[in-house]
Design a protein around this nucleic acid. Structure first.
Lengths: 139, 139
DNA sequence: CTTTCAACATATCAAAAAGGTAGGTTGAAA
DNA sequence: TTTCAACCTACCTTTTTGATATGTTGAAAG
């Protein structure tokens, strides 16, 4: 359900939040710390950068840093970007053409409810709550 | 996330609950009504039968019927059987060898909470609530 | 102003999963 | 003993996942 792309993305965001302190961090440093291959990690950082969750800077002193403070990222926003969508079924994805049987579909309310449960849960947690210096997020 | 296997399985269970009335229903009848190919549907019914959610009878007058009343099936139990698992990550699947980094894993609590949210929601709905004659399950 | 450094871009690839098809076998009942 | 319909095994195509390799651009230090 959640692929390595999304899981790694979340780990990376935590890593940058904890070690960044507003400075740019190099890709190879993150890769080493998180034990992810540099090349695969790069493809994930591209997504996060294009989605404006991170900003990248080239050349000496370059790397990646957060574009906002950890409290402003929900886990849902990170995973929706990297996974493409968190919808349990295709017909609930953003921009999906509506199913012509949606009126009589007996299962649709289940998927809608599940969708809300998933997104609601993940949007209730921020990146700050997962970092060492963040608040504890246990319920 | 939820594949056609699980989605079809749920639709089929609703179909049998609504049209069965304790009698055996033939596969081709369900396939026609649900507009699913007989062969693909067969592979799904095998899973439901092996998992004892349905019982099958061969020969004339044969088919499939529920093994218990619709109120006794949770949606979660149907989907867990057909999808294999509803865990958002591999390390939370039943019988997965525990990750050696689980102690320091900052993301594990997120996955555990998500797992609980998903299974809790889906185990809170029964098959009876999705059938025409069942109760409305809206919250 | 050129060298260095590190992000950015593109192309390719193998393995696994999803989704579906085909044909034959068994067992229950008429 | 014939018919019917579930059951079983094997195969196949397409898509997704999870990478790897090679080269290009742009920012900054010297």
């Amino acid at each position: 359900m959640i692929s390595t792309r999304g899981r790694y993305a979340l780990r990376v965001m935590i890593d940058i939040a904890e070690h960044g302190n507003g400075n740019y961090i190099r890709l190879d440093e993150i890769a080493r710390r998180q034990e992810i291959s540099e090349k695969y990690l790069e493809s994930i950082l591209v997504i996060l950068t294009r989605g404006n969750l991170l900003s990248g800077l080239r050349g000496k002193g370059g790397g990646y840093k957060l574009t906002k403070s950890p409290e402003e990222y929900t886990i849902g926003s990170i995973l929706r970007l990297t996974e493409g969508s968190l919808s349990p079924v295709a017909c609930l994805k953003e921009g999906a053409q509506p199913c012509n049987k949606s009126a009589e579909c007996k299962t649709l309310p289940v998927w809608k409810g599940l969708n809300d449960a998933i997104n609601g849960y993940l949007d209730g947690i921020t990146l700050a709550e997962l970092t060492a210096n963040g608040d504890d997020y246990s319920i």
